[in-house]
Design a protein around this nucleic acid. Sequence first.
DNA 1: TTGAAAGCGCTAACAC
DNA 2: GTGTTAGCGCTTTCAA
Lengths: 332, 332
Amino acid sequence: MITLREIAAAAGYSIAVVSRVLSPCPHEGARVAEKTREHIRGVALRLGYRPNRTAEFLKRGGSPVIGVYVPDSAEAHPAELVKGICLEAGLNSFPLAFFYDATIDGFQRFIQETINFRNSGVIAFPSFQFDERIAEQVEMYCGHGGRMVMINNPGCGSAANLVSVDIDDFSGGAMVAERLLIRGGRRFLTICNQAFPARHEGFCRKVESAGKTPEIIASAKDFNAERIISMLLSMHQNKSNLPVGIFAASDREAVEIITMLAKCNVKIGRDILIAGYGNQYLAAHVHPGLTTVVQPFLSAGRSALIKLSAMIYGKEAESEKLMPELIIRESA
Amino acid sequence: MITLREIAAAAGYSIAVVSRVLSPCPHEGARVAEKTREHIRGVALRLGYRPNRTAEFLKRGGSPVIGVYVPDSAEAHPAELVKGICLEAGLNSFPLAFFYDATIDGFQRFIQETINFRNSGVIAFPSFQFDERIAEQVEMYCGHGGRMVMINNPGCGSAANLVSVDIDDFSGGAMVAERLLIRGGRRFLTICNQAFPARHEGFCRKVESAGKTPEIIASAKDFNAERIISMLLSMHQNKSNLPVGIFAASDREAVEIITMLAKCNVKIGRDILIAGYGNQYLAAHVHPGLTTVVQPFLSAGRSALIKLSAMIYGKEAESEKLMPELIIRESA
DNA sequence: TTGAAAGCGCTAACAC
DNA sequence: GTGTTAGCGCTTTCAA
């Protein structure tokens, strides 16, 4: 491991000067001659210097660790987000501590731990609705100098040191509607998911803007596949309805419908168009393949870490909104 | 944050004594009176002390960070493993650095980074076949005092400081065969997956032990769903074949077959029995639900971290073999 | 513009 | 058995 001491020796300067050149946030008024600066940078590069965050933060009175709060679910999103965060953390030599959870109490414990350990910052992706108790925790943490990046929680407020990275659900829903319109849909059904109202909203607004009327056939809460199948089959009898377009705000429901409908002698992808949301693993491998919306969680993770590390070092960071993308397969 | 200094002050001893009591691996011959020990432990507990691994490892000449090498794939296993590792790391205050990759070169870079950063140990779950170049890296790392826990790589050798945690593929395959036998299968087909020969082996040995002959209808490499479907349909014509049992050594192929077969007027789960491997997300939501093998990757992750932290502190750790479990759904 | 020195929390060698 | 002290790699104050 290359240390400042070795670079100092090789460059012919003191450790202090080297620190001032290489530190990610040198103290106020740390002046080094431009020529010296370049020289030292060259030596550091040649020797393959990587900063020892452990020592850096020990000195600064804390830990370099970034706490990450992720939903404790079997879906693919958290995994992609985690991957993105890990990727960028590796590039920046930040160690990570993950907290898998899905409760408000857990979030509170997470914040408490973060404070206890004097971790350097937090990335949070709560799967539950943003509520007052969360807001309280966020305010408490950020109010006392904590830095936080919040993922996919539009409306979590705008405390100082709080930045958000959101993936636009409204546009995702609209993309699905657009596709169903292009495919000549006559009727537009949607399974509304309480957890993601914006997807549903985006879908409905787009359908309406084309002069059609979206029909809500279920909410994810009272989702009953059999009932939906029989409803679709009766619509299917009247050719003037076809094609019927149906949007499930998560792949799980979409896959249930697609696979139950498969044995009903219905042309999925022609007479009945089905689209989901999330591009879960296996969604590409059901038959017919599921048309769905991919969310750029990998990018969101990377972006979150980049923003957070900027904030840790006292720089400005701006909130960001990322666009999802429609993946077209055979089902719609 | 509570430090040794504060505990020392509260307990009325010097920092050194407190360190000897609370350190996870105090130096040789660190003697403390039992009474003192208890007293200090009590104070630490009361104050809610959590060790500062950053400072601990800075002193020891390294970093507390544990490097984790995981396959860069969209499947659910790595995510579960990661979760297990994170859970236990949190409990033990070990920060983590993940390396997502799927190449031998990447593995080499990973080991190199681990050495550069003086990380405290490594958990590796390479998705590729164990080969000489890997063995070389492992030996080099472990030979120089590096500690490693290897996941699901039976036959990775047994260097000092190398411990393995494996999930028994052979038994998993056998469990599937057993189920198909119980369901009265007459013919037993298997799609052999190069990457997991033991699953296939376990399946075949079990079938043979019941006096039947397993038939290999494809390998994952030349997997062609259409061909398999037509093969199954022609078998289906002759009632004396039924039920036909088919084992895909990964859920992906199983789901393809199940969903393509759905529209063929075949009774899946009665005349044709299908089982997969892995219990990927959505496998429960296709119709009929996929009977498959769950692998305890969460436990594997936790276990790996516990073993590694023992090794880091100079204790012994033993290799372990975990058993998978069959999840019975409607498809078989 | 540069250098010397103190100190973050912890461990370990040595002294008592 | 317990205390004193040095030092891990880094940042920062102060002096030159």
